[in-house]
Design a protein around this nucleic acid. Structure first.
Length: 470
RNA sequence: GCUCCCUUCGUCUAGCGGUUAGGACGCGGCCCUCUCAAGGCUGAAACACGAGUUCGAUUCUCGUAGGGAGCGCCA
């Protein structure tokens, strides 16, 4: 049978890393097995669902490249179908009307808590003959009262829950709108989902869902409950820390490939391999090898992976993502080096594309003044000879390539009989305004001839001015 | 409170009865070096606890402790 998986977020917020990883696992399970990946929006909560959230989720999985084959389906567009199934269960006496007031339910619950037992519906309306007029009843699923539900979770192994722990859950509200545990089953059944991969906060819902499948005469799918992702401090992700949209990671300068790589390794491993391209994930991923333990998110490792991918992906491809950063920083890159050249030089020196863009601004825009500390240390009178020597030779350069530039700087150092540092550091400050930049030949290369000459000349003026002041 | 789930270096993990408990990130040291990086070498760092089972437990079983989730007319 063809594997069919689905990612079914509710649009009450953005797509965060936990959801993104679940989506990734669903996607991998489908793609690796020539299956189908479906996107379904669970928007039955009219109060909290928003258009913006739907868009944020779509944008998030779009950025990650988790393309879907069917959908997005919206549950709000399937209300007729749910009503039909509710009626079917009612007709078969597998569901019943319940007129219990919320007040009674609350009192019941309080009493049960006091008695130290698990709060659950007591079946008060199980034998209700007819609904009094004027009362809008809810519909409850008639859950089996004995026996237990046993299922084999692909991640957790066998899980057993006694039916005695379950109660008759509401499947339709007074206004007829369906509830979550019911719509999931109807949808997964109708969409012929074979593998339900979701967060482990749904483990407790699974047995009751399985009972509904059985009542409908359908075979339950395979379940796989993946652990959640914790914040860096090991506490649950909350709005306060870490629970941010995956799109935030784009803003922070992470490549989607890096985030996917990080996410797939969180709770899953394949020998000692740390680096995975999407193709490699597809080849090696197996949902059964996913860990049971919740994992803490670690930005440090994400940084490392991000740098790795920035260095190893084709520069041209990374450049496209880098362009997004420059745009976000309002840096015009029309006049200056190719973005792919920036990537080749800067990738190993940065953890994120954001850093890369910020540190490369100097190749596109002039800086206002020298960093005080750097200037004080390196733009001293003794630097004059070196700067002049370099400048005059640069003026004669016709081929502006790193190799030639490197030779040139070395030659100057040799002729002046000083170490490379005595030439490179003043030059670096002259070109970048700071004491930190790529290797000096690369810095010259990226600055370009005109810009380099102009900046060295300006630095010389600064050096002369200082000399005159002392 | 009740039910279910989880527990190897700080973090992510390997391990599937006998290992000097391996790798990765991070951290320390050394080397390289024109700055910052990157790279190379190297060091510190873990089986939550207690009983069993066994010739032998990180590994199997049961407790304890700690953590998480669920117990809605939310999803």
């Amino acid at each position: 049978m063809k594997i069919r998986t689905r990612f079914a977020p509710s649009p009450t917020g953005f797509l965060h890393v936990g959801g993104a990883r679940t989506a990734l696992f669903c996607w991998l399970q489908a793609r690796a097995n020539d299956g189908v990946f479906i996107l379904r929006i669970e928007d039955t909560d009219l109060e909290r669902s928003t258009e913006e959230s739907v868009q944020a989720i779509l944008d998030g999985i779009g950025w990650l490249g988790l393309d879907y084959d069917e959908g997005p389906f919206f549950q709000t567009e399937r209300f007729d179908r749910y009503a039909e199934v509710v009626q079917q269960l009612l007709n078969e006496d597998q569901a019943y009307y319940c007129t219990c007031s919320k007040k009674r339910l609350e009192a019941l619950r309080e009493q049960q808590m006091r008695d130290g037992i698990k709060p659950r519906y007591d079946g008060h309306c199980r034998r209700l003959e007819e609904v009094p007029s004027g009362i809008k009843p809810v519909v409850r699923f008639r859950n089996p009262q004995s026996g237990s539900v046993i299922f084999d979770d692909q991640v957790r192994g066998q899980i057993t829950i006694s039916n005695g722990e379950l109660d008759d859950l509401v499947i339709a509200r007074p206004d007829g709108s369906p509830t979550y545990n019911f719509t999931v089953v109807v949808d997964d059944m109708d969409m012929q989902i074979t593998h339900v991969i979701r967060g482990d906060d749904h483990i407790n819902n699974t047995p009751r869902q399985i009972n509904i499948y059985r009542a409908l005469g359908a075979d339950p799918p395979v379940f796989a409950h993946v652990p959640m992702i914790l914040g860096e401090d090991g506490a649950r992700l909350s709005k306060r820390h870490g629970a941010v949209s995956v799109l935030k990671y784009r803003q922070l300068g992470y490549l989607p490939q890096a985030l996917l790589n990080y996410l797939v390794r969180l709770g899953w491993s394949h020998g000692d391999q740390e680096i995975f391209s999407v193709e490699e994930m597809l080849a090696a991923f197996d949902i059964e090898n996913v860990n049971r333990k919740a994992a803490a998110f670690d930005y440090g490792k994400l940084d490392w992976l991000n740098q790795h991918h920035m260095r190893n992906l084709p520069p041209q491809e990374v450049a496209e993502h880098l362009a997004w950063q420059f745009e976000a920083l309002s840096i015009n890159t029309d006049e200056g080096p190719l973005l792919s050249d920036i990537v080749m030089v800067q990738a190993e020196r940065c953890n994120t594309l954001l850093e890369m863009a910020e540190q490369s601004r100097v190749f596109y825009e002039d800086f206002n003044e020298f960093d005080a500390g750097a200037a004080k240390k390196h733009l001293r009178p003794v630097a004059e000879h070196a700067l002049r020597a370099v400048m005059s030779r640069l003026a004669d350069m016709d081929s502006w390539k790193p190799e030639g530039l490197n030779q040139l700087v070395r030659l100057v150092a040799e002729e002046l009989e000083v170490g490379m540092g005595k030439v490179a550091q003043p030059l670096r400050v002259a070109l970048s305004g700071t004491s930190v930049s790529p290797a000096i030949d690369k810095t010259l290369w990226l600055c370009g001839k005109q810009r380099s000459l102009r900046r060295i000349s300006r630095a010389l003026e600064y050096v002369m001015y200082r000399a005159s002041q002392s």
